[in-house]
Write a protein that binds this DNA or RNA. Structure first.
Lengths: 229, 229
DNA sequence: CCCTTAAGTGTTAATTATACATTTCCAAAT
DNA sequence: ATTTGGAAATGTATAATTAACACTTAAGGG
């Protein structure tokens, strides 16, 4: 038997998830109304505690599943928040994760059960603890990532239009982009499949639908290609 | 009194530090010989446990001070490592930090006390646990950061030559850079002070010494400038 | 005073990024 | 059948940035 680290302080380790979704125009975050103390009734990120048999990724997956019913969610560890008094109830360190989901495809009975609601990142409600700080950090990380990895597609339905993709990038980056330059760049990357099919909702003419070609992307990466937008 | 989170599992929270230094030619990491079980006698990153009254940054600072005697060290939180069996002695989550120091200016009596040695990143010894993974992640982070923030100077003495700076970037980025282009870029940033003084060690002619102008940099940042190399 | 060695220095070509306006297509209304 | 409205689709010219490249200078040591 190996000797243990006697006498060292132990702490509660929480995982909080910044869940991003995209709805036509706006980047949104899924927030829950806390139904337990402290700060019961306030808005909060979905969270939970790390269990003995789990690593942090597993905990984050479990927590994301609880709220969305989705099993394979794109997520990334963000940062460990550790101010001594960040949670007034008890010393708790929280490791924040951000996740990207298709806003149309989560289980609404589950999110309703947690009184969860989507909030536009531009008008967030009052949040508990250091959750605003977590969200700011998540936004920054997402902004950087989305320019160097093809993760934006996680926020869109499988088939999407160029305009949707552009709107997505605009709302993440917080700036207007030139339509032609955007399309030229995307096409130059050569990682989308243009479908025959059109989306007829946005205009009479309709606009072509595209799909992300994950295999082609993978192959290009192995050949030294790197996504850059 | 607020209610506590009963029944949740608590864990030990460690902090491990990847301490980078730069010695003429090579990017190096300061490693210690572990003088306690488990894995006593093997190489390891300097680490310690989070204490009740500390946040993670404070713990990292404390640990860095213990080994180097330096109080204001540039450091950044890297990632939380949480595999269930990462430490065979006991369930421990470790939050890794990386730090940049001037290799010439740490307290050698302290590092000797921990049997610490500098190892070139290109020839690292066997390390305990998941420390190799931590180092890989730190290298990647450092590579990205060094191109977008003027943190490389943390690894150099206050006065340095252009050649030293270039060698530093080359060893961090792992690629040769063109001398003229490098100097042109650096000069275009306009954040260095060229001194009258020359360093006569490297050549007969001697090479001019430079200093990072932190104030000027700050001012430029406030005016919207962003470092890019 | 000649040799050695690293320091210092600019220009051109290639690539990449930006700015920008017109035509096409389709359905709905007449 | 024809017109009309509204978003989709499309390419080029210019500017800005990045990459490639070789000779001269300075100073100490022999």
């Amino acid at each position: 038997m190996v000797q243990k680290y006697q006498l060292e302080d132990k702490v509660l380790l929480a995982v909080d998830c910044i869940i991003f979704g995209f709805d036509e125009e706006d980047l949104k975050i899924l927030l829950i109304k806390r139904n337990f103390e402290p700060e019961k009734g306030k808005w909060s990120l979905m969270g939970g505690f790390l269990k003995r048999h789990e690593n942090l990724n597993m905990a984050a997956n479990r927590i994301l599943y609880q709220l969305t019913g989705i099993e394979q969610i794109y997520m990334e560890q963000l940062y460990a928040f550790s101010e001594v008094d960040r949670d007034p109830a008890e010393r708790t360190i929280s490791v924040a994760y951000y996740a990207l989901i298709n806003i149309k495809e989560h289980d609404k009975t589950l999110s309703d059960k947690h009184s969860a609601k989507w909030h536009s990142v531009t008008e967030l409600p009052d949040l508990i603890f250091d959750h605003p700080e977590m969200i700011i950090k998540a936004m920054k990380r997402l902004r950087r990532r989305v320019s160097s990895k093809p993760i934006g597609f996680e926020l869109l339905p499988e088939k999407f239009t160029m305009r949707q993709l552009q709107k997505l990038y605009e709302s993440i980056l917080g700036e207007k982009l030139d339509k032609r330059n955007f399309i030229n760049k995307i096409n130059a990357l050569d990682i989308l499949i243009k479908l025959e099919e059109k989306d007829m909702n946005s205009s009479r003419k309709g606009s072509f639908l595209y799909q992300f070609d994950a295999e082609k992307y993978q192959q290009k990466v192995e050949e030294g290609f790197s996504f850059k937008l």
